[in-house]
């Protein structure tokens, strides 16, 4: 199976390991990630205002390319996924205003949100299947207590993202179970880490991140996993005693790629 792949700015720089692990694991599971050509940064945040057009065009361009190839557009970074998926749904639901103007701004095209946008986790759950992953596990996590951290970007707005129940998601927990680990349930898994506020108000980000890691620790976590480089930055910086890693690292370990 081949999917179009949008790595995003951070996976090419600070989060190279996330990119490498994701590609390697996909190969083992029979999926090739085809990086789309000339992709540009998604901008990191979807601007909800209806008169914002230019800020969404890089996402539209990526969607058009995936659509031409007839492949789903896959991302690993939560932020890219959020921006691209929200843009795609806006193209679909707003054909006269947003989609028309976006098409006018780009090469003559008539794209109206037909492409499928999936996150790497959805690839694992829906396209590969957790049963198949279970078969490929060579080093099970052996009861490792994993707190899965979703943050906000993967889940909300839930009507658009529609990945899982936004208040009690289990897509990562079910993956952990498939890898032989033991998911830890904690309520802060879908609370915001502070995100970009870290840039100008580090203390605010600290308060939010600590609440999350404290909640995960109180529920007995050995490790916290995330899909987002910015969550990773905030949580890692403000969490003591418990490591914070990308979910792909656990996957790579279980599949025997990484020591």
């Amino acid at each position: 199976m081949k999917v179009s792949y949008f790595p995003g700015c951070t996976l090419k720089t600070k989060a190279k390991d996330l990119d490498e692990q994701a590609r390697a694991c996909a190969e083992i599971l029979g999926v090739t990630l085809e990086e789309i050509s000339n992709w540009q940064c998604c901008g990191g945040a979807f601007t909800t205002a209806s008169d914002e057009i230019a800020t969404k065009l890089s996402s539209v361009r990526a969607l058009m390319e995936a659509n031409k190839k007839g492949q789903p557009l896959l991302t690993v970074c939560s932020a890219c996924h959020n921006v691209i998926k929200q843009t795609n749904v806006a193209m679909k639901e707003n054909p006269d205003n947003f989609a028309f103007r976006a098409n006018m701004n780009l090469a003559p095209d008539n794209y109206n949100g037909e492409a499928e946008v999936i996150h790497y986790l959805e690839l694992l759950r829906d396209k590969v299947g957790y049963d198949k992953i279970k078969e490929k596990v060579v080093k099970p996590l052996e009861g490792l207590k994993v707190a899965c951290y979703y943050g906000c970007l993967l889940l909300r707005p839930s009507k658009v993202m529609a990945m899982d129940d936004a208040e009690n998601p289990t897509i990562m927990e079910d993956l952990v179970k498939a890898l032989g680990g033991e998911p830890v349930y904690y309520a802060y898994k879908n609370e915001c880490c502070g995100g970009y506020i870290a840039l100008e108000d580090a203390e605010s980000a600290m308060k939010k991140s600590q609440k999350i890691s404290n909640n995960a620790k109180a529920q007995g976590a050995d490790v916290i996993i995330t899909a987002c480089p910015l969550c990773m930055y905030n949580l890692k910086k403000h969490t003591k005693d418990v490591p914070v890693i990308y979910f792909t690292e656990l996957l790579a370990k279980a599949l025997g790629i990484k020591e």
Binding site: A198, L230, Y233
Partner: peptide, 16 residues
């Protein structure tokens, strides 16, 4: 405002 570890994502998002 930045430190060594801060990901690009934080900067682009903040600018946006």
């Amino acid at each position: 405002l930045i430190d060594e570890e801060m990901p690009q994502q934080a900067l682009v998002t903040a600018f946006r």
